[in-house]
């Protein structure tokens, strides 16, 4: 992770007082997480230094809030909705497919590092197309275990083709 980029990402967070600095820690971490897909220890240090806090404090947040990751993710990143519409329409079977065919659970990455899947406990807001996943701002809805598996296969193949060329 390029720490110069991390510094730049949070440079405009200039708290006027101690309270505001506290309020901005999460915001800073969210920017890093969004940009890199995770927050490394080194990045946590940069954030802590910038806002006058400590790495253990920052880690307390990273491990509490589900949106954060502390490890790099695969080349592609997918959100699998497990909200109630998706559950009722069969998202459990998709979670099971990941487990059975790829040996991964929530937050897991495929063996070749191609794809990380995060299971979302909320609702992605496209409930009429449930069960649904999102990747690179595209949505793939009304999935069955078969079409979902095809999708995962396609992503893996694409990533590997991209790496080979």
């Amino acid at each position: 992770m390029d720490l110069a980029v991390v510094k730049e990402l949070i440079a405009d967070l200039n708290p006027q007082d101690w309270q505001e600095a506290q309020e901005l820690i999460l915001a800073a971490l969210q920017r890093v997480n969004e940009r890199f897909g995770y927050v490394s220890v080194e990045a946590a240090q940069v954030v802590a230094d910038h806002l006058g806090t400590t790495v253990p404090r920052v880690y307390g947040l990273l491990t509490f809030y589900a949106d954060f990751r502390t490890e790099p993710r695969g080349k592609k990143f997918m959100l699998l909705c497990h909200g109630m519409s998706c559950y009722v329409m069969g998202s459990q079977k998709l979670v099971q497919t990941l487990q059975d065919n790829y040996g991964i659970g929530d937050g897991g990455t495929t063996a070749g590092g191609e794809l990380t899947v995060q299971v979302v406990n909320g609702c992605l807001g496209v409930c009429d197309r449930a069960p649904i996943v999102e990747m690179d701002h595209e949505y793939y809805g009304k999935l069955t275990p078969e079409t979902f598996n095809d999708l995962v296969q396609r992503v893996i193949a694409q990533v590997n083709a991209g790496a080979a060329s």
Partner: peptide, 8 residues
């Protein structure tokens, strides 16, 4: 046991 939820 079927994995049922995130972070299960």
């Amino acid at each position: 046991v079927t994995v049922s939820l995130a972070a299960d």
